[in-house]
Nucleic acid binder design. Sequence first.
DNA 1: CACTAAAACGGAGGCGCCTCCGTTTATTAC
DNA 2: GTAATAAACGGAGGCGCCTCCGTTTTAGTG
Lengths: 203, 203
Amino acid sequence: MAAEPSAITEAKVEEAKPLRADAQRNRDRLVEVAAAVFAERGIDASLEEIARRAGVGIGTLYRHFPTREHLVEVVYRREAEALCAAAGELAGKHPSDVALEQWMQRFVDYIATKRGLATSLRILLTTNSTLFSDTSGRVSQALRQLVEAAVAEGTIRGDVDASDVLHALSGIYSAPDTPQWRDRSRRLVSLLMDGLRFGAGKG
Amino acid sequence: MAAEPSAITEAKVEEAKPLRADAQRNRDRLVEVAAAVFAERGIDASLEEIARRAGVGIGTLYRHFPTREHLVEVVYRREAEALCAAAGELAGKHPSDVALEQWMQRFVDYIATKRGLATSLRILLTTNSTLFSDTSGRVSQALRQLVEAAVAEGTIRGDVDASDVLHALSGIYSAPDTPQWRDRSRRLVSLLMDGLRFGAGKG
DNA sequence: CACTAAAACGGAGGCGCCTCCGTTTATTAC
DNA sequence: GTAATAAACGGAGGCGCCTCCGTTTTAGTG
């Protein structure tokens, strides 16, 4: 066990050892393309296609991500971070209830991706169990921020909290395998939102 | 849903629809070879190798077993059955305590195989959850038979029952991934057996 | 026995996985 | 700038997965 700089639980922070410029470029490119391809073709998408579309050789992909799961994990983390960041941005740009609604829509999309992902990540999860607890903690933190702001401003009713909303959302993504799933989810989120708005300001 | 003859929970019983003679022969051959190859190379063994060794084309393998899991399941069931059958045979051939000990040794070997198997079967298990409850029920039934006989004859102590023994065994196969695992397990089974013999006839 | 339809066979072919290693490129030292 | 060296690249090659379909075998029928 050599003393590493500061990378104890790291995994994303790129400080550890500055990559060569071309390597960093390719790595970033791969993650970006992978996110797109996974979204489009599902979690079993061909890694060779990802390499191809990213304009690198398959060898390069494997050097950066020794297994499919490694690549998947990075994509997953990246998207979770984007989702959390969106909470702050939406809050700055919209009334608190609208911000919450839009964020929930994104959340539902995000979950759809994660579906197949969870299966594929099971292997990593046994090794690296901080993955989910980490990210799900941060995600629900983001939700809490939005809900509390909306309650404080009186744009949604005051007798609910973030965990209620999360609970309600969980019903929505129970079976996201049908083709019409995305539309239905959107409608359900709106429905939930109307419920939340109903009686706003009373709490 | 057409009315099938009698194949409601079937899966092994070959009555459903008599296969053509050559088909039946190939199928049996494949299962036999698969059991050997899985034991030797692990659960991820090449299906093409199995077909090759069985002397059939890869197409034939896939016709009989559309997915790897189907083949694995049949092998699993077959071995569970052999294990159960062994209980009766051993009981007829050996003193009751020896029969129990030998059966436990076989049980441990069997579990070793099942290890990798469980992971691979997870897919089927969601669909076909009777698989484990089925077989594990039958296996523990076999164990009960042996334990009760040995207790009745006084070759092992009387203050234990089958579930105690199963419990004790479960400690043995906790981490069967090391190279010395098999030997260690054998020693542990002997140890357990000595404990069971100690004070025999008092209960 | 011969004939036929249905059943089963088997392997080529297309694709994906992953490794290995000769070639190229970035960085560092001068 | 040039040279040297470590880092990174990329794709050929070997193997496995699975499908598809032309060929062979079996089980009936007369």
